[in-house]
Each structure stands twice: as C-alpha cells, then as structure tokens.
C-alpha cells in the first residue's frame, strides 16, 4: 500500500521532470506557477496543518523573500542563487521575533494577527522608497538567454523549491519534533504538561514555514523580474494557499501540493476562458470547499466517491 503510493509519487515526479521536453511556452509558465503555489502551500503547512496555527498572513514571508532577492540583486549585484539563503534567513528572523508574542494567540486571533503583520510589512516596504522603489515596484535584472531556456530554467528551479519544501515537510513529519507539533495541534495544554516546550516548538514550526515561503518568494521575484508591494503581499494569495491546504488535506505531507495542482490547474483550464468572472468563480470555489470538502478531497472520498460523502460535513457542522 505504502509502496504503491511511493511508486505513484516518483512516477509523478519523473513525469514532471520530463515534461519540459515535450511542452513549451504557455504550459511551462502555467506549471511553474503551479509549483510556486505548491511550494507555498507545502511550506506553510508546517505551521498551518501540522501545528494547527492558521497563519493566514504567511504570505508576508513570500513578499519579504521577493524583496530580499530584489534588493540584493539590484542594489548589491548579488547573483540570484546566492540571495536565496538570505530569503530564508529573513523569514526565520522575522518569524522568530514575532513568534514569541503572536503565537500566544489562538485560533482566529492568531490568523488575524498574522494578516496584521503582513499588511504592516507591506506598508513598510511601500514606504521604504529608496530601497524598494515603493509603490512603483522594483525591476530586477533580467536573465540572459533564449526565452525557451529561461522558461525551462525557472520551471526546474521552481520544481526544485517545491520538492525541497516537500522534503522538509516529510522530514518534519518523521522526526521527534513532528510529534510535538501534532500534539500541539490537538491540545496545547496536554502537550505542554507532557514536557513539550510549546512556545519553542511553535516558533520553530513557524520559522521553518517562513523560511520555505521566503525562498519561494525569492525565486518568484527573479522569475517575474518585477515586483511591487501589492502583488507580493496579500491579494488572493493567502486565501488560495489556504484553500489548497484544505483541499489536499492539511494533516498530510503531500496533500497541500496536490491541492495546489488541482486548484491551479482548474483555475487555468476553466477560468482562463472567463477572465471577467474569474474572481467570482474563485470566491465560489472557496465557499464550495469549506462547505463540502473541508477535510480535503482525499480524506472525504476515502474508499470511493459518493454524493452522500459530499454532504457529511454539513451534517456534522450545521447548527
């Protein structure tokens, strides 16, 4: 059973590695975007799904990472890959400093506080005009080479970031600390009297998430070669990320990534034809997920699809 899943997973990865040699242009971009979301959802899942802290504003670290790469490549002429450790580091520093006060909050108080953090950082970046270009945005050095080569380059880099996030998530799920995080998710008091230093572990979880999301942001900045505060901080990113985690299942390692694939590909295939109502469909889709699939598509339909299962959430949670 486990082996079958493992084989499927590696087959999937091999297909993704071979794909760029048969597809091109548009689809390479779409998949790169999908990997981007896969990386964000997977990275954020350590704090959100494993630890149970709905870090809605985790995208803050995406934006920070994007700006770290942006500023380091433009103002300090640093090569792209060399900036990525700094993206991770900035995420770790900010989350550790903020973690101590903010992770004391629970449930939606925490969720909203992280949004507050995100918006505050956004405003700060917006106002640090000399360094970040403020609202005008920041143009990064463009990579040299054939467009096809550049597409492939970012395809593989983004795939790499996503798989790296996945690997970290997998490791966390296996080590001692992973057990502590899941204990915290269910019952923080019980976890603490069992000897788990809950503030420390929560901060650890958030820092790892922040680092991974930060790296993703760095790659994003170099990929698009233009960033501005309003696109990299917030927008629909937080809620899309959350929807992906929910859709795939937040307690699993691979769920958020699959959630990202499902949502991003649906988005691309179906909605690109209806640009005008794209946002409305996104809203409806999120409502749909919360109503019918909050446990994730795989958990809900374990052992086969049926319409009855689709309504089990409503039966459990209606007033």
């Amino acid at each position: 059973m486990i082996n079958k899943k493992l084989i499927l997973f590696f087959a999937f990865i091999i297909i993704l590695i071979l794909l760029p040699f048969v597809i091109s242009g548009y689809w390479l971009r779409v998949l790169t975007q999908t990997f981007l979301f896969g990386a964000i959802a997977t990275g954020s899942n350590i704090i959100i799904g494993f630890t149970g802290y709905p870090a809605f504003g985790n995208i803050a670290f995406f934006g920070v990472g994007a700006y770290v790469t942006g500023v380091l490549t433009t103002k300090y002429n640093m090569p792209f890959f060399a900036t990525l450790p700094f993206c991770a580091l900035s995420g770790i520093i900010i989350s550790s400093l903020l973690g101590i006060p903010i992770l004391r909050l629970k449930g939606h108080y925490f969720a909203i506080a992280t949004v507050g953090v995100m918006e505050t950082i956004k405003e700060l970046v917006d106002n640090m005009t000399e360094l970040t270009g403020g609202g005008l945005g920041l143009t990064l050095p463009i990579m040299h080479g054939e467009p096809e080569y550049i597409y492939k380059f970012f395809y593989f880099v983004m795939l790499g970031v996503m798989l790296f996030s996945l690997l970290i998530l997998f490791i966390v799920s296996k080590i001692k600390q992973g057990y502590a995080l899941r204990a915290i998710r269910v019952d923080e008091d019980a976890a603490s009297v069992m000897g788990i230093n809950t503030p420390l572990y929560k901060t650890f979880a958030w820092a790892v998430s922040a680092a991974l999301v930060g790296i993703t942001g760095g790659v994003y900045a170099y990929w698009l070669s233009y960033i501005d505060p309003h696109t990299v901080f917030g927008g629909t990113y937080p809620v899309k990320m959350f929807a992906m985690i929910l859709l795939g299942g937040g307690t699993t390692v691979i769920g958020p990534m699959l959630g990202a694939f499902i949502l991003e590909l649906i988005s691309e295939i179906v909605w690109s034809k209806f640009i005008a109502i794209h946002g409305m469909v996104l809203g409806l889709l999120i409502i749909f997920i919360i109503l019918f699939l909050p446990k994730g598509i795989f958990e809900t339909f374990k052992g086969g699809f049926s319409f009855k299962k689709l309504f089990s959430n409503l039966r459990e949670n209606r007033l």
Binding site: V239, G279, I286, I290, L291
Partner: peptide, 10 residues
Amino acid sequence: LILTFGMEIF
C-alpha cells in the same frame, strides 16, 4: 474565516 473570505472575494 475562510468561508467569509470566499464571500468577500466573490
């Protein structure tokens, strides 16, 4: 929270 966010986006 996510549900109301979905409503907001809509």
